[in-house]
Design a protein around this nucleic acid. Sequence first.
DNA 1: AAGGCTTTCAACCGCATTCGT
DNA 2: CACGAATGCGGTTGAAAGCCT
Length: 281
Amino acid sequence: MGRQPCCDKVGLKRGPWTIEEDHKLMNFIINNGIHCWRMVPKLAGLLRCGKSCRLRWINYLRPDLKRGAFTEAEENQLIQLHSRLGNRWSKIASHFPGRTDNEIKNHWNTRIKKKLKMAGVDPATHQPIDLDHENGVHNDDDNKIGTTLMEEHENQQVETKLNETTIIDDQDLLKNYEVLMTGGGNLELEGAWSSRNTNYSTTSTNSDQGSSSSQMNPSMNYDLNDRHQSAGSKAQLGEDGEDYGSLKQWVDSVDSMFSWDGFMNTTTTTSTALDGKWTLL
DNA sequence: AAGGCTTTCAACCGCATTCGT
DNA sequence: CACGAATGCGGTTGAAAGCCT
């Protein structure tokens, strides 16, 4: 027999989300909040399952997401956390406000794993790779690198109280909210849909933060004319290739959508939607 | 310029856990 | 307590972009 599917998938759409779908979902959640994911697609007029809507919101549409490349400090902390917590991505993600578990998992699997291996450290165990064992070849240099790296990690672990630390600069995130809320600087909200590292590639790190708002969150500094290239890479136009109305219109409409209570005066960076209103935790 | 290979990351799947009755 | 439904989580996949020859 097998397990029942989480939802009736007959006639449901799959694959990359279109701009229109994103718009519908975002609009719905902002206006109504999240009470039951199962009902969201029906009420929002989406041919998606609730699970898919939830994932899209959490990993992509949430306005409190911090987009952009991982800083070295973030990577270091990620390594430390992983050594303690293993593949418990959601736990790890809770130490990185604005980052999603999916993002962290992807970053670990595609970048950090590789880095550690290059340094002679087993990413699974965080122990120096026993090259004698693995290859039957003795390699002092690699082991040295690995040992050094491990020592470095251990030293950092002593220094850092992991449960209390968050790497992300709260001010940075708050500034992002302000940009969102006020449309300050040269914010163009279409950028919220621009995906992949088309945007990340121009992302400044935390270390060079503090200049213009577009640098604070470069993913938002998005050329409307270039939308089909970057946003379209994943969040595409409609299936019929239709261009979804005036972008200006959308930007204007979003202005009124982002009247989320609390963001402006927030003192923490964690938020959640309750009873249709965004509240801070 | 073109084709093949590699990398990245959004999205899916299915199991685990939590919640409501 | 038991059961079913809803949600959360981690592993995996596949499309698209980037890179290399």
